[in-house]
Design a protein around this nucleic acid. Structure first.
Lengths: 347, 347
DNA sequence: TTGTATGCGTTATCAG
DNA sequence: CTGATAACGCATACAA
């Protein structure tokens, strides 16, 4: 009697595997593996035949298995405050494209400026044994810092530049942006310059920009002051609120620096509705150079961050760290990029 | 003599594993596994102790190993034309957020409207044994169609609605958008209405919008004609080019429908520079309702697609298909959403 | 409610 | 240049 119950395959029975290809060609699975990872170590003849078998069978390498075995993946995790805002999308796009060009994939999560959400994302990503991790700014929770330090993979911080930290930095000094904005307005002759903070809580970078503004005004012997909109507001409304409130003061400002272009747009349109002339009655300055900024009336003066460049360079640094591409000698841990002053009609 | 050479650990020696946790607690690895996947099947007392051990040891589940063993992952791949354009970012954001709320991660790639790049992305994603795949529109290469059909995982098509196809659809009929735009202009009394195509090649959805416009005009006994900008142009420049060219014709249009708001913005500003009054000399209509559209002068009339909703519903359909959340009875394969006419000053 | 044995598909190690 | 074998860390089927 044939009592040997057939060794039932338990799970993923359908999938074409490395072994199937190997059997088809008549070589060992290992050779097929090499065909993908080190083609130069496989003889020309075999390469040809394996290539044919692969496409004939429609074999797709199981990256899970490969990553498990080699303890490294071609996934790079990125945590960024948001995707749909006008400012980070370019960074994500450039980052993703550069990564893809070199066979790596982007795992994406947004933090909404929340340190806690960032930590969650980092923790989850780590479960995927990512090849590298990219975060935004140098503001993290203590646990996140610890996790990143112990991760033993390349870590890149974007949209910021902070010498003295372990991770690779790709960005700029927000403090300098504040200085740049203040200097521009001082040069133009404005003297009562206010700063409007972001309504999004957790945007610590905006605080650094304000610090740059504050110090510059102080150095010029001028008074600095800032307005903090209600936290519930969407940025556009917050800008409106700021403009109305500031212009009602006993001694209103003759220029306002907004933490970003959304706020500035709200302020700009509100000023016009209030019958104020911009920039004659009050100059307006933003940050970000969003798509609409040049189309406003008057066109908004602002500071343009190198959003795409940040994404691209961050990706290159990651790939260099992984030795996927040759390192630009030496691997610079600090990549200071420049923001550009875009002077238009509102100042 | 003790000749037994120590079984040298070969690779990932440092990592804390399920076994480490199990040993610490004094249970089997399986119980710890259950702690994560089926907490309700673990006794209260053990749950407590395992939880403590997990955080004490800083254990992070290796999702690669888990996915390999179970042949399914918590990764969902999304291929979308672009990330940084103003129109898809909201969809990505909503999709990612909804996914994250239910413990799934987003693997993202952009196709730039290229069928080939889309196919590459899909192929690569499949190597990760994704839980599901989301693509944009119903336009794919034949191979992509085949791959998706054979993938045996939920597939969702977004930004489109095409009855009669296998994948779940979440979107709207672009044809209807063309009809809506044309009707709006006809209602307002315009009679010589032109259509400006997108400069991005591969944007087939824009062609469907034009078809809707064309049929509507024909039904009204009116002539329809369209302008195709040079393919190299960025959209804003293409809009400028279109406006200049169309208004130079012997019988210029009295209204123009642009394939999207970027083009429309270019056209609008150009019209003003040419000394034309909008909408008196020529009405302008866009598609997308980008962030700047309401801030233009005159404010742009346009059609607003449900970008966020598409992302959210696509995610929900994916999660339902995976039985991660209860299915809204029955699992509708077709999810027709509505676009909204946003009438402002330019029509 | 908990444990034992086994396999997921690939790559590292070491040998030829 | 090619191959046999043992991991990688976890989840499934089945048993207790």
């Amino acid at each position: 009697m044939n009592d040997i119950s057939p060794p039932r395959k338990r799970r993923n029975a359908g999938r074409v595997t490395l072994n199937d290809v190997a059997r088809q060609v008549g070589v060992s699975a290992l050779t097929v593996s090499r065909f993908f990872n080190h083609p130069e170590r496989v003889s020309q003849a075999l390469r040809q035949r394996i290539g044919e078998a692969v496409s004939a069978l429609g074999y797709v390498p199981n990256l899970m298995a490969g990553s498990l075995a080699s303890a490294r993946s071609r996934i790079v995790g990125m945590v960024i405050p948001n995707i749909s805002g006008p400012i980070f999308a370019d960074t994500i796009q450039a980052f993703s494209d550069t990564l893809a060009r070199h066979g790596h994939q982007l795992l994406l999560a947004s933090s909404y400026f929340s340190l806690e959400q960032e930590e969650n994302a980092v923790r989850t990503f780590l479960g995927w044994s990512p090849a590298a991790l990219v975060v935004t700014s140098h503001f993290h929770s203590e646990s996140t810092e610890k996790i990143l330090a112990e991760a033993e993979i390349p870590v890149v911080e974007t949209w910021d530049y902070q010498p003295g930290r372990a991770p690779i930095q790709v960005g700029f000094l927000h403090y300098d942006v504040g200085v740049m904005a203040a200097r521009h307005l001082l040069d133009k002759g404005y003297r009562r310059i206010a700063f409007v903070l972001n309504s999004a809580v957790g945007d610590f970078s905006a605080l650094e920009r304000r610090a740059g503004y504050g110090d510059t005004l102080q150095a010029a012997g001028l008074e600095s002051w800032s307005f903090a909109p209600s936290a519930e507001c969407v940025p556009f409304e917050a800008g409106k609120q700021a403009m109305e409130s500031l212009m009602k003061e006993a001694r209103p400002p003759d220029a306002i620096i907004f933490a970003n272009d959304n706020l500035a747009a709200g302020g700009l349109l509100t000023a016009r509705r209030m019958g104020l002339r911009v920039p004659d009655d009050c100059a307006v300055m933003g940050f970000g150079d969003y798509a609409f900024s040049g189309m406003l009336l008057p066109a908004l003066s602002t500071i343009r961050p190198p959003a795409r460049l940040i994404g691209e360079i961050a990706a290159l640094r990651v790939l260099e760290s992984l030795s996927v591409i040759p390192s630009t000698t030496p691997l610079q841990r600090l990549n200071r990029l420049e923001c550009e002053l875009v002077e238009r009609e509102s100042t």
